[in-house]
Write a protein that binds this DNA or RNA. Structure first.
Lengths: 335, 335
DNA sequence: TGTTACACTGAAAGTGCTTTCATTTTTTCT
DNA sequence: AGAAAAAATGAAAGCACTTTCAGTGTAACA
């Protein structure tokens, strides 16, 4: 007994009495084939249990229609929103989304070196990770269309924001609102080697502007806090229970601003009367809780990134782009 | 500038002055080719950075080490948390995560019919989507290891919760807290054909318990509201500006509970004194804003689902599992 | 020295699908 | 009814490899 071969497009063609081209069309662009024919074809397909083989398809198409995203803890709200932008664009363009969550340095290394080799990705988006020269080279040499978000590299497309300017905006706004005693809470020194340092820049801009305006900003008003809820709360608590507590707090991310708000609530501090809080990112949740914050267009960054890879996949000769996304201060109810 | 095409076996052949067949052999059965020739070939391969794509794919086909997740708007917090569970487990097991965001009926149909087919997925997790018999059959026939979350099917693994019981828990709790006038807000009738109806069940349980306890629950206290922020706010507003406004509101999802809270704030209603709010899901954010809610172990559901597919991939003979995850009422500060 | 065996190698035929191009059929318009 | 336009279809040419088949050239043997 011969092995029960899985049916191919040829079997379907024979059974339904049309050419393989028509089968292919019935499957991929149904509008280009007569409804009746299509029905016949579909019946044959069902009867045989036909299933187009991905490998063959990818070969013929010369693309897997799949793009990958490398990102640290992709479930943090800000990353999720970026991903949302990516996913929307990709889905519309009929591309698959493969996620590579990075939770360690080796992970990242491994991904970068093996991904292009696997050769089943058409493009790559790398979020919020610093990539080294050799890794970049490898990507480029393998012709992998790549775009970086929140990090830039001469030879790769990138989308960034001006974190320092963001810090300045916050400082200016707070000063203008009459605050004289300010505090800062954020993850200034991420431990990972591949981490980037946007928070540092935000603090820098913030600090400089305060200095320039002659507003005192003692070291003790700056609190390092990991992204985690517990850690942020602890830091917020320390900041808010100082003898001369600041009247306004700049949290380097919205999530951390929420922690501050929670602690303030526990301490019976009214916001914004007793304490002004301002965040950074403008995640969805910021609107829900009326948090004043700096919008960095997260969804948009993802959308743009996806559009850039897609564009480059279609036309590899496109010039490199380095996009600097604008920042806006969104006034809500916490300042 | 020509696009940096990735080299093919032809390029290698040209460079090393042999035929493509020899290249192929040098790679796949080295013993059948003259060592000198082989050396020449390998040099050319290295020089071009050639990577046999089909081979990689073929290997990948044996086991793609890749599992897919079909989910509606995967960026909604509750889905993200499930994904977080999935991703954690997968990443540890060295599996890739492919996300298929469903935004329309056809999408879903398309995925289910083409995914198993494509044969480049080892397993599949389908979240919060009702799948039809024929689709389930197709999955089973193609030997695709599948687990369903929030929906169950006799022949597929599934992880569900008891939504009705969740509704009952909320009602009991609210009654016990002395509330006599209750309201409900949720997306009772999702429009999509593939949608599931957990909210309906939650409402049912809620309603029944109230009836049994003799607490009146007029129709006008039930508001249908889409998941969207705007829609939820509108509904909350209507509910809260009725002449005899309820003293407690059950929002069928935390996100919608947040909308209720926002509207309450605008209306100058104090929570929980003027209005009690209780949600459902226990997303991360619930803790941040001290929302009382029903925990449905989102992360855990994802983790479990991933573990189930993985287990089944390793041992296809494993018995089907239908897991019913427990629900807990988490008391925080909004009731 | 003439055969034979053998190790290498290239041409070419698959592999299962997509897509272009040309052809046929149908529809629309005058 | 006839011409022009539009729709539907099939033939065939890829796609990037693998594998078979039929040679080559050379070493080994009688």
């Amino acid at each position: 007994m011969p092995p029960p071969k899985t049916p191919t497009i040829y079997d379907v063609a024979r059974l339904s009495g049309v050419s393989i081209a028509t089968i292919s069309r019935a499957l991929n662009s149904p509008d280009k084939v007569n409804p009746e024919t299509r029905t016949k074809v579909m019946e044959a397909i069902d009867r045989l249990g036909f299933v187009p083989k991905a490998e063959a398809r990818a070969r013929a198409l010369q693309s897997a229609n799949r793009i990958g995203v490398i990102t640290p803890f992709f479930t943090a709200p800000s990353f999720v929103q970026r991903l949302r932008g990516v996913a929307g664009t990709l889905s519309r363009a009929n591309y698959e989304l493969v996620i590579y969550p990075v939770d360690s340095v080796e992970h990242m290394q491994g991904y970068i070196s093996s991904i292009p080799i696997m050769g089943n990705l058409d493009g790559l988006i790398i979020m919020s990770l610093a990539i080294e020269k050799t890794d970049a080279r490898r990507l480029i040499e393998n012709g992998m269309q790549t775009v970086l978000i929140e990090f830039s590299h001469e030879e790769l497309n990138s989308i960034i924001i001006n974190d320092e300017q963001g810090g300045r905006m916050v400082a200016e706004y707070l000063i203008q609102k009459g605050h004289k005693s300010l505090g800062f809470l954020g993850d200034i020194e991420p431990p990972e080697r591949y981490a980037i340092h946007p928070v540092k820049s935000r603090l820098e801009g913030f600090k400089k502007t305060l200095e320039e305006a002659g507003v005192s900003f003692p070291k003790k008003n700056i609190k390092q806090a990991l992204y985690s809820q517990e850690n942020s709360r602890q830091a917020a608590y320390e900041l808010l229970s100082m003898s001369s507590r600041p009247t306004a707090l700049f949290a380097a991310s919205d999530i951390q601003a929420l922690s501050v708000m929670k602690v303030a609530r526990q301490l019976n501090l009214r916001i914004p009367d007793d304490l002004a809080v301002i965040g950074f990112d403008d995640i969805d949740m910021a609107d829900y809780v009326d948090l004043t914050t700096v919008r960095q267009h997260l969804d948009e960054s993802g959308r743009l990134a996806a559009e850039m890879v897609l564009a480059r996949i279609r036309d590899g000769s496109r010039a490199l782009q380095h996009i600097n996304l604008p920042l806006n201060l969104v006034e809500r109810a916490t300042v």
